[in-house]
Design a protein around this nucleic acid. Structure first.
Length: 474
RNA sequence: GCUCCCAUCGUCUAGAGGCCCAGGACACAGCCCUCUCAAGGCUGGUACGAGGGUUCGAAUCCCUCUGGGAGCGCCA
């Protein structure tokens, strides 16, 4: 009998210190898909211990981005369960308990070095060609020395005592076996002097406490991993499996930063990109498991293959994103299309008009604002024709438009019937027949198919626009 | 500075020694289809960063270089 696959738990752990950019979004997506692919859970944990830099507004915007992308969490903010709370700012008691355990096992020691002292030490090491690591000044302080520092009013940080002469090994989910010597790791701070826990500590501890089994995160965390493994080991907790995703670079090859507007999820949304377009694009950035064609969001977890995640950094390419955007727009149903278009349309536009507009331009727009010119074409006034188009109309001549008017009376706004009728009356066909009609009716030489346009234009407008060119002699 | 990671068309990538004078997708160009644009179909150009090895044979293995990235924080 096959074993029941053990349900996995993945997480995304945003820090509300800025807006979500595409790199974050991909990390969230991959974690989400990994969980879904195996019938597991995806949880969200807010890493908001850094009170100074974080803000509630950033948190809200990130949660909104996640929901917009369709990455809903089984547990997290707004969905608390027995593993919570899911905001680190509410987990102080848990952290205190575990600090006590660390102190109790002698895994840590108070460090009284000041920021300036540490900075000087770092510079000295750098100048000597050494990697800057904590020198161990406070590692073996005795009670008297500690008391002296305390008496001087120094508040200590808590440092983790990295065991010397060991190798820390782990199997990276995307990079394979990794191994480092503890000699390469300096004793690191686990609690700041003001009592605030640091990232290494809460991040690793919370993953263990929340039952997270798999963590996909940016490659920038790769060298953190041995520290976190050591920490969890000292705490007697089982670590998750870690996988490190290559970084996402901008088109210029520089890392994506929060200052790059184009890389922010919120900006993409504001520009009119659809979430399914973004996830289809992201699904292929540094991941070769997806097929070449569109993958519906519901099917994306099935297309995600952990063993097809690459190790080389990938570049953000807006042209490629736009390709998926076109694919996404094509697949919008009428109601979704209308909702998507709405923000770009004038408030005065009625519900009926919005429906007609959507049905007409759906294959000709990439962003909602692309529909705006067609509002005027369909329901407004036409500007004077540019010369080249005016010539086409003139060549057709007033007689053509008189025939078209008559045909319209006879057939109504049905393109096939109308075209047949006009052909009979004028002998014209093909572009000779359709282009003058298109230009007279829309004022442009390009655009959606004529059939839907005929149906969308009010009958009085149809007659009027043909009549404008029907005067005069042939 | 030190440590680690990465390296195939412009971009995303396939490729785990002969199946590759390198395949696909996007973009680009041309043609077809067509009332236009788009879509669709077909065709085309463009890549193994450089240099050394190993091998009968290397995009694939090894070394050096170059280029890029990450880490070395009382940031996350």
């Amino acid at each position: 009998m096959p074993l029941m696959p053990s349900p996995i738990t993945t997480r995304y752990a945003p820090s509300p210190t800025g807006r979500m950019h595409l790199g974050n979004a991909r990390t969230a997506l991959f974690n989400y898909l990994l969980a879904k692919a195996q019938g597991g859970r995806f949880v969200l944990r807010v890493e908001d211990t850094d009170l100074e830099r974080g803000s509630e507004a950033f948190l809200e915007s990130q949660l909104a981005d996640l929901r917009w992308l369709g990455l809903d969490w089984e547990a997290g903010p707004g969905k608390e369960d027995e593993r919570g709370p899911y905001r680190q700012s509410a987990r102080g008691g848990l952290y205190e308990d575990h600090y006590r355990r660390l102190v109790g096992t002698g895994s840590t020691y108070p460090c009284y070095c000041s920021a300036t002292e540490l900075e000087v030490s770092r510079r000295t090491q750098l100048a000597a060609g050494q990697p800057p690591r904590y020198a161990g000044t406070c590692r073996e302080l005795n009670a008297i020395e500690r008391a002296r520092h305390e008496a001087a009013g120094r508040r200590p940080t808590l440092r983790f005592r990295v065991p010397p002469g060991r190798r820390v090994a782990f199997d990276d989910l995307v990079r394979g076996p990794q191994e480092v010597s503890t000699e390469e790791i300096g004793d690191f701070v686990v609690r700041r002097a003001d009592g605030v826990p640091v990232f290494f500590f809460c991040n690793a501890l919370d993953d263990a406490l929340m039952g997270v089994t798999h963590v996909l995160r940016g490659e920038d965390h790769l060298t953190n991993t041995p520290r976190q493994l050591l920490l969890l080991e000292a705490l007697g907790l089982a670590p998750p499996a870690y996988g490190h995703l290559p970084m996402l670079l901008g088109a210029d090859g520089a890392p994506l930063s929060k200052r790059r507007g184009s890389a922010s999820v919120g900006d993409l949304r504001a520009a009119g990109y659809l979430p399914a377009a973004v996830t289809n694009y992201l699904l292929r950035l540094g991941h070769a498991g997806a097929p070449d064609d569109w993958v519906d969001p519901a099917a994306q977890s099935g297309a995600f293959r952990l063993d097809r995640v690459g190790r080389a950094p990938a570049h953000f390419d807006e042209v490629q994103l736009q390709h998926w955007q076109r694919e996404a727009v094509k697949r919008l149903d009428p109601a979704a299309l209308e909702a998507w278009l709405a923000p770009a349309l004038p408030d005065s536009l009625g519900a009926r008009e919005r429906g007609l507009l959507g049905a007409t331009v759906s294959h000709n727009v990439v962003f909602p604002c692309d529909a705006l010119p067609w509002v005027e074409v369909l329901f407004g006034e036409l500007p004077p024709l540019p010369d080249d188009l005016a010539q086409v109309v003139e060549r057709a001549g007033p007689g053509f438009f008189r025939a078209a008017l008559a045909a319209l009376e006879a057939t109504g706004p049905d393109l096939a019937a109308l075209a047949r009728e006009v052909r009979q009356r004028t002998g014209r066909k093909g572009a000779e027949l359709f282009m003058p009609l298109r230009i007279a009716l829309t004022g442009r030489g390009d655009g959606p198919e004529l059939g839907p346009l005929l149906g969308a234009l009010p009958p009085s407008t149809l007659r009027h626009r043909l009549a404008v060119h029907a005067g005069g002699r042939d």
